[in-house]
Structures are given as structure tokens and as C-alpha cells.
Design a protein around this nucleic acid. Structure first.
Length: 408
RNA sequence: CGGGAUGUUGCGUAAUGGUAGCGCGCCUGGUUUGGGACCAGGUAGUCCGAGUUCGAGUCUCGGCAUCCCGACCA
């Protein structure tokens, strides 16, 4: 993509009421725009990051047998009445149509996915199975905060799994856990993300969160210094010991909950009477699990973890582009390189604007694309183009003929 | 939802109750091009509604919005 055609612009100053670092950088660089508190538009650069994240997650969810679907945002009141959550869920957005029919804007999809499964699932032979979606969630947060980390409308991947037995759920739950680890590793958050024991509600002892340590975190976790798992503050008092290795050597950290996995057991299958016949012809209530990741929150977390004073530093797997090609002065060579990179399917943002070198470098640092390739009279005199990684200081001159293999 | 703060042009800011100014951006022309270039000319604004006053960005009341702390966050 040519930067001269990009309809968004960078800004030197962040809006003064934006304190959250992730929002400051994402807004300044033109990745997102705030429509109102907790509600953001994804601009071209930001959307590209979201799509990268989405594809990483999709690959992993498919890998554990998830079948992708898309459920609606608009939910009939009846479904929420059946589980009682129409009245008990404080952050449920309720809307009415012109004939006063009440509906909810979905904050989560148990109330929809369970009746859906009910239509197709009759036998133990139909189990296990899992469905997932990327979908907008609505939650009436009394106070949205922390930039894109806590939104009122946000895109979430939610997967629901259905099982004949608790053992089967446990097995699946474990595979989902591993898939989550791989997702956060690809997103560049491996070192700082801890599997965290959290309260499980009334139907299981613990749920698990994936918590990424950063000062921008809203949660307090206690990281076991021995085995690296963590315990959420909400349950530390109950255990005092690491549920994994029994150690009591904890380090307190602030962290962002980037994902969670939850054993629902029969909490939602009971109210909707989701059951199957087992091999003995007996009716069995279906056992469920659910597994969520907020995409925008994950993007914001990556920014909180990977940035410096000049801007963002995207890990390659989630970067909007792989290469930021910058031409200085007038030169034909940059256009040729741009065409060549595109021909070889290397994602490139080409800064072809008529701007000063300083402006272009500052923007490149702010946007944070992993590889910066500068084409200028000076670089060509030195024998090629200058390649510099965003997360390194040193640059090197690469001959044109070797550029492709360097970037592939 | 309780408490606090703040609303001036696209962004950042200034203005004892008395002509709304500056920087960035944007537009025109010219000179520039390796770390947010320069010159000249231009563009655009007081959150909304009442009130006080000869006169309101400034004072009063109400509303709305945003941010922060807390509570909340299957």
C-alpha cells in the first residue's frame, strides 16, 4: 500500500484526555479512532493488525476442531429470561423495536449457542464438538477505561465446546489451553503471559485466565516464582499456595487478562435442556466449556508490551505490514522495489509521500513496522538500500539483488 | 453508580468580564529532502441551553461529553 493513498494521517500529539498509552499510540499512528468512550473504529492499519490476530486465532481454533460460525448480535429477550440473566446481568444492553419488543445486544453467546446446538444434537455420537466465532460483543461498562483494553463494544473470539462427560471436557479444555499458549506466543506475548487460576463460579473450582504482565494491567496476579503459573488476587487468600507446584513464593504483578477458558459444565445446558442419549439409551445433560479472547484487547496489550519512546514495535506476526519502504528524495528505484516486493507477496507500506526525511522516519518509528527499508541517493551510493529492524539500532546496506532473500 | 477534574478550529494550547491569539496540520506559490525543513500568503474554533451584564471563552444554573480514582467486570 502506498502511504500517500492512506486516508489516515499520523499526529504529533495525542488527544489530551487520552492517558492510556495503547490508545495514545494507536490514535497518533492512525490505527484506531475513538467514537465514544469504549467504542473504537478500526482504521486501515489497525484493522490489518486485527485481521492478523484473527487469523492466528482461527488457525488454532480450527486446529482443536473448532467449526467457525457467526451468531447474531441481536438476541431475543426470551433466551436471556430462560437463564435468568435478563434480570441479573448488569451490563446487558437492552433495546426495543418500534412495537416494544425487547431484545438484548449480546454480551456473550451461551444463550444463543445452546439453543442452536439443541436443534442438531441428539446423540452421544454427535459429541464432542466445538463452534466458535469472531463477533462484536456489547457490554454496558459503567466506566470504560484503559484505551482499547476495556470497551463497550468489542470483537471477541468465543468458542463453545460440548461434551458427553466431564472427562471429555477436561481433555478438550487441556487442548484449548495449549492452543491459547500458542496464540499468545505468536502474538509476541509469551514471556509475559501466565496461565492464571481464577475463580470458577459455582460450577467448577477454578477457571483459567491468561494474564499478560504490564503496568497497564487492571488485574493483580501472583506469579509463582517456581513454576511460572499465576493466581488471581481474587482467590489468592483461599489458597496461599501455588495450585500447580505447592510453592508459596509469589511475585505480585499487574496484568491484563488477554484470554480465559471456563468450564461451564451444565450451567447453560440445563436451562435449555440440552441433552443427548448415551449408548445405554439414557438421557445425559451435555457438558460445556467456553473459551474467549478479546481481539482489540490483545492488540492493545501488544502495544503496551512492545513500544518505546518513539512508538510501537510490532511483532512480525501481528504487524500491519512486514516492510516499511521509504523513499527519500526523488528516485525511481523505490517504485521498482515496491513493485518487486508486492510481486513476491511481501506486505509493504510504501512511504512515497513528498515529506522530509525526519518526518518519514518519525512516522515509521511511530507506526512500528518490523523492517524499515530506505531507498535514497545516499543508500544507492553505498551500494543498495538501507535495512533496519524497528527493534534494533543498527542498520545495514543490502544490495538490491539480495533484498528479497533478506526479507523473505 | 459514588467521588474528582476538564471541555476554545482536525490536534495541542493562550486569552483581569472588553477585537478569540499561537504552534502543528490543511490549502496556494516557491525553495528544500538522512531524524518531525524554510519563506510568503491563506483556512478553520469558544460542547449544548438558559441566566447575570452595556458586554460572557471567562460569572451563575441546568444538560451533555471525556478522562481519572473507587465500585462493578459470567
Amino acid at each position: 500500500m502506498k502511504q500517500s493513498k492512506l486516508f489516515t494521517k499520523t499526529q504529533k500529539d495525542a488527544p489530551k484526555d487520552e492517558v492510556s498509552l495503547n490508545a495514545q499510540l494507536l490514535i497518533r499512528a492512525g490505527f484506531v479512532d475513538k467514537l465514544m468512550a469504549g467504542v473504537y473504529t478500526m482504521l486501515p492499519l489497525g484493522l490489518r493488525v486485527m485481521k492478523k490476530i484473527e487469523n492466528i486465532i482461527r488457525e488454532e481454533m480450527n486446529g482443536i476442531g473448532g467449526q467457525e460460525i457467526l451468531m447474531p448480535s441481536l438476541h431475543p429477550k426470551e433466551n436471556w429470561t430462560i437463564t435468568g440473566r435478563w434480570d441479573t446481568m448488569d451490563d446487558l444492553y437492552k433495546v426495543k423495536d418500534s412495537s416494544d419488543r425487547e431484545m438484548a445486544l449480546g454480551p456473550t453467546h451461551e444463550e444463543i449457542v445452546v439453543p442452536l446446538a439443541h436443534k442438531f444434537i441428539n446423540s452421544y455420537k454427535d459429541l464432542p464438538f466445538a463452534v466458535y466465532q469472531f463477533q462484536n460483543k456489547f457490554r454496558m461498562e459503567l466506566r470504560s477505561k484503559s484505551g482499547v483494553l476495556r470497551g463497550r463494544e468489542f470483537i471477541m473470539k468465543d468458542l463453545y465446546s460440548f461434551h458427553i462427560s466431564e472427562e471429555d471436557l477436561n481433555k478438550y479444555y487441556e487442548s484449548a489451553k495449549q492452543a491459547y499458549f500458542r496464540i499468545f506466543e505468536k502474538a509476541g506475548l509469551k514471556d509475559k503471559t501466565h496461565l492464571t487460576f481464577a475463580s470458577g463460579g459455582s460450577f467448577s473450582k477454578y477457571s483459567h485466565e491468561f494474564q499478560t504482565v504490564t503496568s497497564a494491567g487492571e488485574d493483580i496476579i501472583y506469579v509463582c516464582q517456581k513454576c511460572n503459573i499465576a493466581v488471581n488476587k481474587e482467590i489468592i487468600d483461599e489458597t496461599n499456595k501455588c495450585p500447580e507446584c505447592d510453592s508459596s513464593d509469589f511475585q505480585e504483578e499487574k496484568a491484563i487478562e488477554v484470554g480465559n477458558i471456563f468450564k461451564l459444565n451444565t450451567k447453560f445446558s440445563v436451562p435449555f435442556d440440552l441433552s443427548v442419549m448415551d449408548e445405554k439409551g439414557e438421557k445425559k445433560t451435555v457438558i460445556m466449556g467456553c473459551y474467549g479472547i478479546g481481539l482489540g484487547r490483545l492488540m492493545g496489550t501488544v502495544v503496551e508490551v512492545h513500544h518505546d519512546a518513539k512508538g510501537m514495535i510490532w511483532p512480525e506476526a501481528v504487524a500491519p505490514f512486514k516492510v516499511h519502504l521509504i523513499s527519500l528524495g526523488k528516485n525511481e528505484e523505490a517504485e521498482k522495489i515496491y513493485a518487486e516486493l508486492q510481486k513476491n507477496n511481501i506486505e509493504v507500506l510504501f512511504d512515497d509521500r513528498d515529506e522530509s526525511a525526519g518526518k518519514k522516519f518519525a512516522d515509521a518509528d511511530l507506526i512500528g513496522i518490523p523492517y524499515r527499508v530506505v531507498v535514497s541517493g545516499k543508500s544507492m551510493q553505498a551500494g543498495g538500500v538501507e535495512v533496519k529492524k524497528r527493534n534494533e539500532e543498527k542498520s545495514e546496506i543490502i544490495e538490491m539483488t539480495y533484498l528479497l532473500q533478506k526479507l523473505k
